[in-house]
Design a protein around this nucleic acid. Structure first.
Lengths: 189, 189
DNA sequence: ATCACTTTTTACCAAATGGTAAATGTTTTC
DNA sequence: GAAAACATTTACCATTTGGTAAAAAGTGAT
């Protein structure tokens, strides 16, 4: 819980009363490996904050291939935020890669916080912008670099995830086959 | 000018007095093809709104290759916004691909608008989020798809840009060489 | 119209990556 | 602990893409 408050306070000042109010709205959710936090075709029910575990964002492309395009690890928000805010159906999945523990907020509770705490919308706006920018920065080399360089940049960006994520999902994230990734690993050693 | 106001009003309600105030702060800037709107190593001076022309965002990677990672066309904001807001040095270039006409706002004028118009920060926050999300959506297929599919998705995303941008820059954006892109064009015909 | 300059296309071969399939290694289940 | 299920590595060859270079096409200036 401390991590959650610390995270928020990086983006704006709130007093103890305010953070207590926010925390009072949070519930916890445990997900088993491979369970979905949010699904394509359904309206996202929660904003989450990942206390423990790893989740991934994925979708299916025209050819029916499953594409993993984002990973999130501990002490970060997990949300299909645009779809959650508008309460419209999502077009992608958010799935637990490992067993996960999250704080969650329903739409009603999230709105309550926004209506109660002055500056909350600004804070969450900053957080979202920050996450989007980080996503863009991380994905940029995946377009222009060769497979080995992509893998090295992945390791830099997610040093802790290496051994917690199936090879096939890392390969999908990098835009290569798992055979190629396996070969690259071998060449690096 | 009409397009500029229309663009803003998509993200929030402002009355005539407010939009007039905003417009009163705008200056115009003409850029010749290949001139920079903003440069790596320098503090961005303006937020721009592109009235006419095309600009690109680019940077140099470890190998010294120039990577184009974003195009912007008419009636969109042009800004290295994070760096502009914080007034810190940029790490990438924003360059005119064609001759351009822009509305521009200095940091002082941008802040004046924020301090005068209630809700302006919320509006610009929404605009930025929207731009970032669109960027992510556009770039996503560039990681996972093959070169031909990438090119087709580029045409979908930027139908008007095809014939206004040098082949080499499109190829860089797609993460392939210009020879490959030329070959792909031939195969598609 | 011509020349110089730049951009795009084409050709060729080398290198990287993909696809199929089998072998090996690891985890889960009973 | 053995069997089954799943994940990773390896091998092989086909396909795609990259790199170098030259030809062709397009552009701009005089």
């Amino acid at each position: 819980m401390k991590e959650f408050v610390e995270y928020i306070l990086k983006f704006g000042n709130l007093n103890k009363q305010q953070t207590d109010f926010i925390i009072s709205k949070a519930k916890t959710l445990d997900l088993h490996k491979e369970e979905y936090f949010s699904e394509a075709g359904k309206i996202p029910r929660y904003v989450g904050f990942l206390l423990d575990g790893v989740v991934r964002f994925c979708y299916y492309n025209n050819k029916g291939e499953e594409i993993t395009h984002h990973f999130i690890d501990e002490n970060n928000f997990v949300s299909d935020q645009q779809k959650f805010e508008a309460q419209v159906v999502a077009s992608e999945y958010i799935q637990a890669v490992t067993d996960c523990k999250l704080l969650i907020f329903t739409k009603k509770d999230w709105d309550d916080i926004g209506n109660t705490i002055v500056g909350w919308d600004a804070i969450t706006g900053l957080i979202l912008k920050n996450c989007l920018l980080k996503t863009i920065e991380r994905r940029s080399p995946l377009v222009s670099e060769d497979a080995t360089t992509r893998y090295l940049s992945f390791i830099e960006n997610f040093p802790s995830l290496m051994n917690r994520i199936p090879l096939s999902q890392i390969a999908s994230y990098l835009g290569i086959t798992q055979q190629s990734l396996s070969r690259i690993r071998k060449n690096i050693r």
